[in-house]
């Protein structure tokens, strides 16, 4: 059965299995889980909700995937999402044509520009100054919410702008706009990394930075770019979150989204040690995280233990992916000790 073996070895199989298991669990608890209905030209249903609420996590996780592939990490994405939402809302609220489409477009462009600037900052710290990514982005993770507070003046800024509302809560051809946006960014990222040489170069830098440097890879530019991209994705996610609630909440918008994103990436099979990355894996991982978040209350687990449950589920998926466990499951030839960073001889 060579095919089954090959399948078991593929990195995507366990995340998909885990996701399916969650879906089955949900269907058992709630037989209507998978049903989708069309009403007023819009799709409704639990699955649609999961997709729509999962869009920001997916976006952030996409950027995070590339960052992690270069051996980095970006803890500041949640704060950037909050800043982006704050900038957009404050601008819309402060405009004298608060509900005009133009206002929304200008505001969102400004917000994304700010996000890109913040990404440039992160990238500068990491690639030029050589600061450890976890420390470099911790700066903005902690300071960023303060910045967002400054922007909103410490208030929850609410806005009424139909165009802005579309991004997070609107529908296009019956599908939530947020889902479409996330899919477009996903597709564009996939094209950009796999149809150009970007993906390969990112992986090379993540696997062996020194060999890549000697081979002439401009690793500084590449690393800088992925942080900018991650910040851009976080900016878009921040717009979605703010748009969905028509408000900018500097304290709570995108709170802990960086952790969800990192989990999604890891569940999707991209190693935190950098190197080979899988966008498809991240996609499945993000869906898993979001489905889990909706499953927990629906099967009657008290909200207080939410995080505990999540942790258990995540550990289970990660275990399934660990080479040791998988070799035991699939009866592979190598003993665990062959791990890449094996102990010295």
């Amino acid at each position: 059965m060579p095919d089954v073996r090959a399948l078991l070895r593929s990195s995507l199989v366990w995340p998909v299995v885990a996701l399916l298991a969650l879906v089955v669990l949900n269907v058992v608890v709630n037989p209507g889980f998978l049903s989708v209905r069309l009403q007023d030209g819009r799709l409704y249903g639990s699955v649609i909700d999961i997709l729509r609420n999962g869009a920001p996590v997916l976006l952030v996780a996409l950027g995070m995937t590339l960052v992690i592939a270069t051996r980095g990490i970006d803890l500041s994405v949640g704060a950037i999402a909050a800043i982006s939402g704050a900038v957009a809302c404050v601008q819309i609220a402060g405009s004298n044509q608060e509900s005009a489409a133009g206002t929304a477009i200008v505001a969102m462009t400004t917000a994304l520009a700010v996000a890109v600037l913040l990404g440039l900052w992160n990238g500068f710290l990491v690639s030029v100054l050589g600061i450890q990514p976890i420390i470099a982005t911790l700066v903005l993770m902690t300071a960023g919410r303060g910045l967002a507070m400054l922007v909103t003046d410490g208030q929850i800024t609410t806005v009424t702008n139909p165009t802005f509302k579309l991004v997070g809560a609107g529908f296009f051809l019956a599908v939530p706009v947020a889902v479409l946006v996330a899919l477009v960014v996903f597709g564009a990222t996939a094209l950009l990394t796999r149809r150009t040489a970007l993906g390969m170069l990112i992986e090379a830098v993540g696997i062996n930075p020194e060999a890549s440097r000697l081979a002439g890879v401009r690793s500084r530019t590449i690393i800088w770019t992925v942080y900018v991209f991650a910040a851009f994705c976080a900016g878009v996610a921040g717009l979605m979150i703010a748009s969905n609630t028509s408000a900018a909440d500097a304290n709570n918008a995108g709170l802990w989204i960086e952790l969800d994103a990192i989990l999604a990436v890891v569940i999707g099979g991209t190693s935190l040690a950098g190197g080979r990355f899988s966008l498809a894996g991240t996609f499945v991982g993000a869906l898993f995280i979001q489905t889990l978040a909706t499953t927990i209350p629906s099967i009657g687990i008290p909200a207080e233990t939410n995080y505990l449950f999540k942790a258990v589920a995540v550990i289970a998926v990660c275990l399934l992916q660990s080479p040791q466990v998988r070799s035991a499951l699939a009866a592979r030839r190598t003993t665990p000790s062959r791990a890449k960073a094996g102990a010295p001889a």
Binding site: M200, E203, A204, N208, A211, S212, A215, G216
Partner: peptide, 29 residues
């Protein structure tokens, strides 16, 4: 090992790495 091999990439990718780097990421070989 430290300055040449990019272990998790394929032989083909390893071979064209330097050429690809000079072309830049926008122009894949």
């Amino acid at each position: 090992r430290a300055e040449g091999v990019v272990g998790d990439l394929t032989v083909a990718d390893n071979m064209i790495l330097a050429l690809q780097a000079t072309r830049g990421w926008l122009r894949p070989v």
